[in-house]
């Protein structure tokens, strides 16, 4: 237990460091051409960044990747500890582990995004959410952080796949929420005509909007799959695939909210600002589904 808790702790500090570096990256001195308005193709960020920002950005990425590796090690260590003590392998079997897993998935998603699109400014928002998730986990009381044996209802191979799939969808929605916040920041800056260096590293609004949509399009099928796996599990454990238990109802609510979003995008006016606000709202609902339901509402899922 001690070993994994130490690694989780280290993950927390590394994510804090990464977040700080990404924020510093945004504030770094840039060549004046960087202040040109939006519309830059995203591949040319290196030119716009200049020496200072580029170096800060590289260190930020390195620290993030290292933090993610430590996060991975922490989850693996916890998995082996679980195997010894509680007869299951899944390192997402209580609230603490689930949060640590979500931040792992958020950071993984971010690293892949950065690899593909090379937009480091997103780090300040998305790594931020990963850090908050890890931080909230560390704030849980100690008795929530240990690997207690699972109650019989949860001790099943379904926990491996149902929980991990659902949590991964939360991570995708977190990514979309972070991008939504970023969009709103950037849009405000554009409306005010701010010439602040801060926004020079931001991609154009359309790109942020599109990436947010992509994140939701990854989260949406994952959540559907997660809910259905949950239904299959319920059918195995409780004798009915759907019992309107608060947790399953709330994940359905979240899914419906995003369902409305993807259809809304097909009609006019639901891109950009509205979509960004909606993505933030959707993410708040995800947080409620993940935290609020476990702590505020009663039900079969209240395993925390």
């Amino acid at each position: 237990m001690v070993r994994s808790l130490f690694l989780f702790d280290m993950t927390f500090w590394l994510y804090l460091a990464a977040l700080t570096l990404y924020v510093a990256y945004l504030f770094a001195r840039r060549p004046s051409m960087a202040l040109a308005p939006a519309g830059y193709p995203s591949e040319q960020f290196d030119e716009r960044d200049g020496a200072w920002a580029t170096q800060l950005g590289q260190v930020a990425t390195l620290v993030t990747v290292f933090g993610w590796l430590v996060n991975t090690a922490a989850l693996l260590t916890r998995a082996f500890e679980r195997l010894e003590h509680s007869g299951t392998f899944a390192p997402w079997s209580n609230q603490f582990e689930a949060m640590a897993y979500v931040s792992w998935a958020i950071i993984l998603g971010y690293v892949l995004l950065e690899l593909r699109y090379k937009i480091k400014a997103i780090g300040a928002f998305v790594v931020g959410i990963g850090f908050i998730a890890m931080g909230a986990a560390s704030l849980l009381p100690y008795r929530y952080q240990t690997a207690e044996p699972l109650v019989p209802a949860l001790n099943s191979y379904w926990i491996y796949i149902h929980v991990s799939v659902t949590l991964t969808s939360y991570a995708a929605f977190a990514m979309a929420g972070g991008l939504g916040v970023m969009y709103l920041f950037k849009e405000r800056a554009e409306l005010q005509g701010t010439q602040s260096r801060f926004y020079a590293a931001f991609p154009d609004l359309e790109t942020i909007d599109e990436l947010g949509y992509k994140a939701i399009m990854i989260g949406f099928p994952l959540l559907a799959f997660g809910i259905i796996l949950g239904a299959m599990w319920a059918n195995y454990a409780w004798g009915g695939y759907w019992s309107w238990d608060p947790k399953e109802t709330w994940s359905l609510i979240v899914w419906l909210i995003y369902g409305a979003y993807i259809h809304a995008r097909m009609t006019r006016g639901w891109e950009g600002r509205r979509a960004a606000i909606y993505a933030v709202f959707g993410f708040l609902m995800v947080i409620f589904c993940f935290w609020g339901v476990n702590f505020l509402l009663s039900g079969l899922h209240a395993y925390a």
């Binding site: 109802t249 709330w250 359905l252 609510i253 419906l256 909210i257 409305a260 259809h263």
Partner: peptide, 10 residues
């Protein structure tokens, strides 16, 4: 419908 079902389900 998506939103109304979501709201009433709460």
């Amino acid at each position: 419908l998506f939103l109304f079902i979501a709201i009433t389900a709460t």
